[in-house]
Design a protein around this nucleic acid. Structure first.
Lengths: 110, 110
DNA sequence: TTCGAATATTCCCAATTAGGAATATTCCGA
DNA sequence: TCGGAATATTCCTAATTGGGAATATTCGAA
């Protein structure tokens, strides 16, 4: 159902977690590296990573003393699928919005 | 910053609100109609719509005794922009994931 | 074996909110 | 003008969680 998608959105619904995912976009990161880069505490970094992990958004590789976190970018695919699904029926609405916006602009005589 | 995007994700991070948005995809809905369709209470429907409204995802038209809610589909555009931004650098990772998945499949001798 | 670095977990507090119940508000029709 | 329909808001409770502080755990190096 929509539960899965809602969980995914929930995991993304935090500025720090978004920044984390954007960092992970290019390379793997260690907890300490991320905490330092983001300017947040190590425990908070671990907690946010835990939430991303539970949401299936990252993978973790245990490497001796440290953990390397990597983005599991395929986990974002449901988001794209939903947007495609949504866009299919909103095109008509989009055109209406554009039309109304342009009418408004003409009214204002801009 | 990422605050805006996080707020958007937050508004979408609820199964009932996702169902609401999917209903609004095709047409306007009245609070009572939505509550009835979704099988949730009227107050809860109003509260969820309020959250969607605060997130800029819906517009409301007061029509005598009732309010007609409509999707403001342009509000979902930042989501697409973020995906595009993310995809730009994750392509390499995607190819790696695909490669690893296929290697795994071969190992299993499927 | 001991120490320190890296990380996860727990405890605490404050804020948010989903959901139910009750109530307030607005407006139309009789 | 009054009653009922439609909607929003408030009060309550339980659950979640972000963030800080402290602590537990694990592991490599000396």
């Amino acid at each position: 159902m929509e539960e899965r998608l809602a969980s995914l959105f929930h995991a993304l619904a935090d500025p720090n977690r978004l920044r984390m995912i954007e960092l992970l976009r290019k390379q793997e990161w260690t907890v300490g590296m991320m905490a330092n880069q983001l300017g947040i505490s190590q425990p908070q970094t671990s907690k946010h990573l835990r939430i991303l992990y539970d949401a299936g958004l990252v993978t973790v590789t245990i490497d001796a003393n440290r953990r390397r976190y990597a983005l599991k970018s395929q986990a974002l695919k449901p988001l794209d699928a939903w947007r495609t699904y949504m866009a299919r029926e909103t095109e008509r609405l989009d055109r209406l919005e554009t039309f109304l916006a342009e009418s408004q602009r003409e009214e204002n005589g801009s």
